[in-house]
């Protein structure tokens, strides 16, 4: 069994010949391996509090955090907070991805547009995004619009940079193949540029999503009456560390799940990649 964990990347083709039971074991063992570290830490802390090493007042043990989550869930409050935050992230991420992809593609594809547009975008990128908060509140009010705008700003830049950089680094030799087959502009984009750009685009989306989750907290700090960020602030002001940790745990779960969704959707599209996968495919 140890060899399944140690499969060197070079022996990849062999995995196909392995027995079915072995493969089934791998399918559960690989993800399970990722849970070992957080579970061990949680268990250790639980034991430390239980044995009286710490009183667990400022850092409540996992059992109390879990109890808080269950309590919030029972009252229905939790779903309200989660859906609010999720919809903010979704709206901001969508907006940021659409604008970032469009402008990034324009800058990458047309030299003139790049010279015209890119310096300004890069200058804007240099501004810490939180610095926009006061302005957004003045312009867009304290409700949803300003929050979504802030998240969109955070998502925009990595997506813009990723798309532009990916287009600029498409292999000239591959583009020449398209030229020898006399592809028109749109056909060149569809048949050569889009697939060539896709791997980098997926990375840009994942980075953008990460920043989206970061900025939703910033947005909810600036005055919200619901959302997971509100739970954090509320927990701080009322001295409820378990509630803060509960919100943090849910952030971790949601962030990981949404990131995994992107991975899940795009993996079939990137099966062709000749990538270095140390330790075998996952």
């Amino acid at each position: 069994m140890t060899m399944t964990l140690e499969t060197p990347a070079l022996e990849r083709p062999e995995t196909r010949d392995r027995s079915a039971s072995n493969r089934r074991w791998q399918r559960f063992a690989r993800p399970a391996l990722g849970v070992v570290l957080p579970l061990t830490l949680a268990l250790a802390w639980e034991l430390a509090v239980w044995s009286g090493w710490s009183n667990g007042r400022l850092v409540p043990p996992p059992s109390r955090v879990f109890a808080t989550i269950m309590e919030l869930a029972r009252s229905g409050e939790l779903w309200r907070h989660i859906t609010t935050t999720l919809s903010r992230v979704a709206a901001g991420f969508g907006l940021g991805v659409v604008t970032g992809t469009l402008l990034g593609a324009i800058s990458g594809y047309w030299g003139i547009a790049r010279r015209l547009l890119d310096p300004t975008v890069q200058a804007l990128r240099a501004i810490p995004s939180i610095a926009w908060v006061p302005l957004f509140i003045l312009w867009l009010g304290i409700f949803e619009t300003s929050k979504v705008a802030l998240i969109a700003v955070g998502v925009f830049f990595p997506v813009y940079l990723g798309v532009m950089g990916a287009i600029l680094s498409v292999d000239r030799k591959i583009v020449e193949v398209g030229r020898t087959f006399r592809l028109s502009g749109p056909a060149m984009i569809r048949r050569i540029l889009l697939p060539a750009v896709l791997p980098a685009y997926v990375v840009a989306l994942r980075v953008g999503l990460g920043l989206g989750w970061m900025f939703v907290v910033a947005a909810e700090f600036m005055g919200a009456s619901e959302g997971l960020g509100y739970l954090l602030i509320d927990g701080q002001q009322l001295g409820k560390p378990a509630q803060i940790l509960a919100a943090i745990t849910i952030f971790a779960l949601l962030g990981k799940t949404t990131d995994w969704l992107i991975e899940l959707i795009t993996t079939p599209l990137l099966r062709w990649q000749d990538a270095f996968r140390p330790g075998g495919e996952t």
């Binding site: 030799k173 020449e176 193949v177 020898t180 050569i192 697939p195 062709w272």
Partner: peptide, 20 residues
């Protein structure tokens, strides 16, 4: 003066499209 359908070319490298 531009690529023409009557002319094909094979390069030093295969230049296959990796996603196809």
């Amino acid at each position: 003066s531009a690529p023409h359908e009557k002319i094909g070319i094979i390069f030093q490298e295969p230049r296959l499209l990796p996603w196809l």
